[in-house]
Design a protein around this nucleic acid. Structure first.
Lengths: 138, 138
DNA sequence: TTAACTGCAAACTATTTGCAACGCG
DNA sequence: CGCGTTGCAAATAGTTTGCAGTTAA
């Protein structure tokens, strides 16, 4: 989960400015257990700060991704942002559309990496995604 | 890997027609070990059959996905099609951009499914994707 | 024969870009 | 005060849709 305070430190460290728009975006992501899409972030931010351009949201989200503070998930229904950086899997619910986190045993990920290395690859990042029913829909 | 003959059977069984355009698309996918994007399919098909509309390619690819003959992969650089239906992982090479298959031990996938079920979910499909370097770039 | 399919063009949606004005540090 | 950032609008890219004409079965 994203920590807005830490994120601002990271921004400053990179010589980036703490603008009200950024603060609003960070505030929305901080404590957000969901996996919002760009338009959901935009909706929230623009609600409490009208006039913010969509391109500004895109700019800032990309900046946060570059800083490694959040992760981009490309799902069929569009790009989702994941404020959680701990390794975990995702399940995209085919009933309600939500994306829920699944905690994975650490050994599973290393087994996957091992398999890839056996084939001569150098994996840098592993992501496990599922499609099915979430706990509330199952 | 897709078998064009089997695919035609499946099409007929669903009351769908075997059109020259479909045959050309199937021929391109049959034996293709890569993960082509729509535009690559279009390029090939249109090369040996000029005049084929892009929308026709989209129509047919969607039909094939619906029939379960191929899989859609949403990567950051666009949609790729995967003619291989056996369970396997993908590694998206950050150097050459190719997507290569990684064979996974069957137990890994079932471990993932097990973990999801522990959290109360009903996973229907698991996909493992990596980002890193492929064998030729590593 | 006829319902499915194709080709074309226009419509859409999501994302990116260029640039002048703004404002954080 | 200067440079990163913002907001706007226009540009782009990828995909979808509507429909009249075509064609596989």
């Amino acid at each position: 989960m994203l920590d807005a305070g830490y994120a601002e430190q990271a921004l400053k460290a990179k010589g980036m400015r703490i603008t009200p728009q950024r603060r609003a975006i960070l505030a929305y992501l901080d404590g957000n257990e969901q996996h919002p899409r760009i338009d959901e972030i935009a909706q929230h931010v623009q609600h409490e700060m009208p006039g913010v351009a969509l391109s500004t949201i895109y700019n800032n989200v990309h900046d946060l991704v570059d800083l490694g503070l959040i992760t981009e998930l490309s799902e069929k229904d569009g790009i989702h942002l994941d404020p959680e950086m701990e390794p975990h899997a995702h399940l995209h619910c085919s009933s309600c559309g939500k994306i829920v986190d699944v905690s994975l045993d650490q050994t599973i990920e290393s087994d996957i990496v091992k398999a890839a290395k056996l084939s001569g690859m150098k994996p840098r990042k592993v992501s496990v995604d599922m499609e099915g029913l979430c706990p509330s829909c199952a």
